[in-house]
Write a protein that binds this DNA or RNA. Structure first.
Lengths: 262, 262
DNA sequence: CGCAAATTTGAACCAGCTCAACCGTAGTGG
DNA sequence: CCACTACGGTTGAGCTGGTTCAAATTTGCG
């Protein structure tokens, strides 16, 4: 293994493994498993469409660096961004099961991602219960992000949605080990932001300006500065519980078994 | 095994196994696996709260009969129903991983469900790759329902959302082997319907009346009659692809392996 | 029958949308 | 070095899909 790939693996361990370490016991065997699977680090330029809407899935990827968007383009030209894929998340996990994608997967930034050929990943899953557990966990994690987004889109105002999604992104980026929390780079335009929240770009702008006037946050030139985190979380009704799970402790008799390396 | 439980198992086989049979080869070994796990059929009365919002998870259930709602109650009294759990779906799958629930799980009708103790299910997952694959599949299935709901809430009008969710429910109920498609029992009030769609109850009513005036559908006394399915799907922009998946065929070398009974 | 819950309808209102014009900044090419 | 262009952001004005409020009607059920 080359030095660069090894460095990549370390980065990986510090993101995905960090993410799941609050839940699993991440030991050397686990790391070895990931090392075995993640041996093909690929680079994509910003703007690359990994899977086009309606196109065939290729392989699964584990994102190491950069932002990937999963979005739906509507008949009338509108767009809805369904989720933001951050380092440590899997891209196109559905490729394991489905032929076609109903969504577009595109790179918002330059991206590094480990390519996990479906066949190889499938085989690894057969042999390694730990890996299955990790996938299960990651699935559940993403599912709770989507559930929370549904709550936002269904029952929160534009201002609350904005606050909530920003709280969520900050919390998720923290897990990826970002430098500063007060000052963050969010590589998205206001238009993309509005497509995450399901509002118009004009209203997006006015909402952001209002937050700025209230000295809660500023978002300019892709730089997010949060001046009043407490107020932001309060308005969002944000509870980070769904991002940093509480592991259940009452029934752990099965877990060591489940997590055995097969 | 008692006769009633055996009958239940057959029903189960005809729902969950039916659901996944388009994807997996469901043979006797697979059925035996489920028979082993699903030996505790429980009954809940309509209105029962299986898991309260903010409460501790208990066990996982596999729904055999009835409707279960997963919903969030907001501070201001509003509610968002995140998903509708139908026969063949799992209830509270997150119980395997998380201590607390951010949502309420409640029975809309009388319900029969197989209780799957976390410990037992976890153990079974360790030993049986087929079961893991099935869970993975079911997770992915639910994830695509949530993704599609996000698209609806973000970028479709109330009328389109209504049409879309009805198309989705009909397609899902078809899989569960419902009798008639033209005339369906939907055990939800207009208020609950509006909480699925993220609109007000008043507008829900007006939208339904409009569909009735247009001779597209009627929904009265919990009976849904679809008079013009084509028009409904057209307005919804509905494509059932995300419910009845196309199994991928290009890389099936790993699957037989993955699906081996461990 | 009679109560409680669900539905229906109209009227006023408003959060967020569309349209349209303008601004700032980063290329780009002459 | 400037002119031109393109793209994202900003702002105001008017509009509308959907909300809220309120009251009447129907339905389910003991």
């Amino acid at each position: 293994m080359e030095a660069q790939e090894e460095a990549g693996l370390i980065a990986l361990a510090e993101i995905l493994l960090n993410k799941i370490s609050g839940f699993f016991d991440v030991d050397d065997a686990v790391k070895a498993t990931f090392a075995e699977i993640c041996d093909d680090l690929q680079e994509f330029e910003a703007g690359t469409v990994i899977v086009p809407q309606g196109g065939d899935y290729g392989d699964v990827y584990l994102l190491e660096r950069g932002w990937v968007m999963r979005s739906r383009h509507m008949e009338n030209g509108a767009r809805q961004i369904v989720n933001v894929v951050l380092p440590g998340d899997f891209v196109a996990m559905n490729a394991l099961l489905f032929a076609r994608s109903d969504f577009e997967l595109s790179c918002k930034t330059d991206v590094s991602a480990y390519r996990l050929p479906s066949e190889k990943l499938g085989n690894a899953l057969t042999r390694n219960a730990m890996l299955s557990a990790a996938l299960f966990w990651v699935n559940a994690h993403e599912e709770s992000l989507l559930a929370e987004r549904i709550v936002s889109l269904g029952r929160r105002s534009a201002r609350q949605r904005t606050a909530h999604v920003l709280c969520e992104l900050v919390a998720r980026l923290q897990i990826t080990g970002v430098q500063s929390i007060e000052q963050l780079m969010l590589p998205i335009s206001q238009e993309e932001f509005s497509d995450i929240l399901g509002i118009s770009i004009v209203h997006m702008n006015k909402t952001l300006r209002a937050f700025e006037r209230d000295n809660i946050l500023s978002f300019r030139n892709s730089i997010l500065v949060i001046q009043n985190k407490g107020r932001l979380e309060l308005e969002a009704g944000f509870d980070k519980g769904y991002i940093q799970f509480t592991r259940r402790n009452d029934r752990n008799s099965w877990r060591p078994n489940y997590l055995e390396i097969g």
